[in-house]
Amino acid sequence: MSGIAHTRIFRELKRWRSVVAIGALLVICLHPSQAPSLAPFQLPPQATAARSAEEPITPMPPAPEIDPLKVELGERLFNDARLSVDNSRSCSSCHDVRTNGASMKRHDFGRDGAELPLNTTTVFNSTLNFRFGWEGKYRSVEADVSASLVNPQIMGSSLAGIAAKLGLDPSMRMAFITAYGHRPDPGNIVDAIASFQRTLVTPDSRFDRWLAGDRSALSDKELDGYKLFKSLGCASCHQGVNVGGNLFQRHGIFHPLASRDPEILRVPSLRNVATTAPYFHDGSAPSLDDAVRKMAFAQLNATLTDQQVDALVAYLNSLTGQYRGVPVGGGP
């Protein structure tokens, strides 16, 4: 491309950024119901890649390349009830990768039959978060896996006890020797599960295809929802590759949102959010429509119109990716 062509493209980008910045300032000053419906601004075709780079959300990458023997073993362990002290549950009991990577319950139940205090988060794309769990207590997937295995309410095991049980199984013992060169031990058990979890990414959502340059991937309504998502300020907390998951935030800034504790939460990812009802840390929002309305009111002091909610929900549906070539949860 000639230097003159480069100059024209960057002039157009500079003009586009100025228009967006001015428009954003005007929208922020207005009540959401007063926000104008703007016609889509069209960039020159040569600037498509540059436009995607300007967005607050980045495309989901494919699964990382990890030793397939370790991943296969990790998947076996993820579905093995022997990881629980009483052989009653596996990781997949609460994190079902055949559906949404979590469960459909407001709260899952602990080993004693009591409800767990927080709604189960999805395991899909979880390794792309900067912390793990609603409270962000753990900094690595290995630490998160270990904590779940020894938590009395979840698996109630010890890593040494799991290794001893698995070591008695000739097939499992051989799988560890093949993948790691030795029998199961606490370190390679956790590493295998973590290796599998790192492959649980869900690329190729329709929004990812739009970011990659497919302008037909989203409908006008979904694009309107994305514009509103940005102009309202939702993207201030929900951005990056995981559309969230990379900072802490206080909930109930203007009005109560859900149960008060914990007051500070890791912002959840919105990837596949249309499949993960019920919503919030206490599971108190039964539908995405309800969650959007409550979030806007509690966090932004905004009462959204039905049209705005419909547009935002339409956009959020476009964030449903694929796992092993199938849409997560069978969603759109």
Rank of each mutant, 00 (worst) to 15 (best):
Q46A: 13
S93L: 13
L73E: 03
H255V: 04
P117T: 02
M174A: 15
Y279K: 04
S219M: 08
H281D: 01
G181A: 06
S90G: 06
R183H: 06
E222L: 01
S84H: 00
G136Q: 06
A160C: 02
P62T: 08
G283W: 00
A39D: 12
G161M: 10
L69H: 06
Q197P: 02
N151Y: 00
D306S: 10
L149P: 00
R51L: 15
N317E: 08
F41L: 14
A35K: 03
T122Q: 03
D112P: 00
E72S: 13
F297W: 15
L26T: 05
E142W: 04
F207Q: 04
T320C: 05
T303A: 10
Y138K: 07
T121W: 04
H107C: 04
S158V: 02
D191A: 14
I28Y: 06
T303E: 12
K221V: 10
N317V: 00
L43S: 05
A212V: 00
V201G: 00
L316V: 03
S88Q: 11
M1T: 09
R51N: 05
Q308P: 05
A179E: 12
Q322D: 03
Q34T: 12
V292F: 08
G233I: 07
R271G: 12
E142L: 02
L149H: 00
A5G: 01
R173N: 13
T120A: 07
G74E: 00
M155W: 05
T127K: 05
V71W: 06
